[in-house]
Design a protein around this nucleic acid. Structure first.
Lengths: 326, 326
DNA sequence: TTGAAAGCGGTACCAG
DNA sequence: CTGGTACCGCTTTCAA
């Protein structure tokens, strides 16, 4: 009599178990379950195998399968450790579902928007190699520049800043503040947006246009502090990074007695619903992103044709939309 | 001279390559690189092995490793295909990072908040088995009830609805509308919140309290349509699902000429920053969630002690906070 | 049409 | 202290 077994772990069926139950070999099981084209299996055999698999609740062991195959259906997607706003998180989420619909396993890997130069280094070529080596089929990077070996979804954030500044300039503003979020991990977005605004200012005809970076955190206190010293700044307009920061700042400015847009024009970005709910209605920079489905199929295609070449997908077009705050 | 090789795939080094270069066996490589305690390796050998690994840029093959080990460090986290609001997505994101800091690989698996009964079935016991079988170390579920075999993060959404309704009732309101988002995938949250409100109404002392479900989509049109028929509804208060829906509805109500809170009291939930920016300031139900770190360590502990028992972690406490809209 | 067997890359026994 | 070796579970030639 064997020793009183402690709760034996529920036996996980392998393909061998299925084969035994179906009275065939493991090879046959594999063929049937993978619908192998290269080999004809009789219908009765297929039935038996399928029935056995069903009965045992057999599920192929993912690790073993990919060890043998030499590749996985894993796609690495970047994540930020900090909220990046509804627009991009929705987009990323959509992409993720689209990829999954294509039967990929999506693994989050972290480094979207590390501070400053780290951002670039984080998704460096070496990292990419490491990640692919570990079994990933594709690595997706999001950033201002392409990354060798990965699918780079490059988002031209500069254009956002440029459109905002151009809009402000066209409406006669010359002293423009640009909100730069203090939150770590947003530099990936805020840096280029600021740079784009500077470019637009430099390219403007007529009198010189001044651009001033305005650090601000996403909190009432920070917005209030900025608003308190506003009059001393001598600014006649502000590009508030995005609609959420814009809402925050606009409220603080109004509480400070400033009139929008008379005393100061405010423009946001991302065209969120809240912008239309504010009074005055918030002008914004609308961003056009491709659908997750579209992007996913692009990735899928590129994965099937392993062209070891860096794939670079340009995303985003931006356009200012005028409402009441500018 | 060899034929002009087409771009030969960069040879991925295996532990055998490292062994060869270091002049030792694969076993030794494994011992050194895993800091095996059970066996003493001389310091010179260790050096050689490490140097060789470094030089080749060796990275252990994840699939092979987990095939051998019989387990992975993968944790499955649910995702919704629909935005679930800043509060929960931030929370999930935090948890994800915390898990990663603990060296887990986080894989998103999809089904948070499928419609109706599907929600429950999606994370059924069978699914859980399948997922674990495929190599996952832990499966996390979020929902109103525990799920056998998974770590269930159960969030008591009913309490949110109950607190909101109780707050409204305490302030003398008797005819309460409850916004139910029309977006698919939010039932997981909205259903319990509505049910909680009903319970609170049932438990209220004094004259009967009426609860009316108010379907509404997250769009200006839908909010405007609801506001347009508001006077016919005979409601004196509304629990607007969360602060975002509340902002939307409040705006529409005000545009319709209704006064808040005189004609209708409005309360949201989740205590988002925007609520404090609105005028009148939005009353809300504040939700206390544990930190991602805390939860991650809970999960980690449970994983180490494979107690095959369903783990159930109760989350959330809710409290109404009164501001100006009620 | 089916089965036997050789690995994929790593880990962990057991000898030496 | 180190090397040989038997697996983990699956896919896929190659023969029968």
């Amino acid at each position: 009599m064997p020793p009183p077994a402690s709760p034996p772990p529920p036996p996980v069926p392998t393909s061998a178990d299925v084969a035994r139950l179906a009275g065939v070999s493991r090879a046959t099981v594999s063929y049937v379950l993978n619908n192998a084209e290269a080999v004809r299996i009789s219908e009765p055999t297929r039935r038996k195998v399928r029935a056995a698999a069903e009965e045992l609740g057999y599920v192929p062991h993912a690790a073993a399968r990919s060890l043998r195959a030499g590749r996985t259906r894993i796609v690495l997607l970047p994540t930020s450790h900090v909220p990046i706003g509804p627009l991009y998180s929705t987009f990323l989420n959509e992409l993720q579902w689209a990829l999954r619909r294509l039967d990929y396993t999506v693994v989050q890997y972290g480094s979207l928007g590390l501070s400053g130069d780290e951002a670039a280094r984080a998704v460096s070529a070496h990292n990419v190699a490491t990640l692919k080596r570990a079994g990933a089929r594709a690595v997706i990077a999001m950033g201002p520049v392409g990354v060798p070996g990965a699918h780079a979804l490059v988002m031209n954030q500069e254009e956002v800043g440029a459109r905002a500044a151009a809009h402000l300039i066209a409406r006669g503003r010359r002293r423009i503040g640009v909100v730069v979020p203090e939150e770590d991990g947003l530099e990936l977005f805020s840096g280029p947006r600021l740079a784009g605004a500077r470019q637009a200012a430099g390219a403007a005809a007529g009198p010189a246009v001044g651009i001033e970076a305005l650090p601000m955190a996403y909190s009432e206190e920070s917005a209030a502090a900025l608003a308190a010293r506003w009059r001393g700044l001598g600014l006649d307009a502000v590009f508030a990074y995005n609609d959420e920061y814009a809402m925050l700042l606009m409220r603080a400015l109004q509480d400070e007695g400033l009139r929008v847009p008379e005393d100061v024009a405010v423009i946001g970005a991302d065209d969120l619903l809240i912008g239309r709910l504010l009074r005055p209605r918030l002008s914004t920079v609308q961003i056009e992103l491709p659908t997750g489905d579209h992007l996913a199929s692009l990735v899928d295609r590129a994965v099937r044709e392993p062209s070891e070449v860096t794939q670079r997908h340009d995303l985003m077009t931006a356009a200012a939309v005028h409402r009441e705050s500018t």
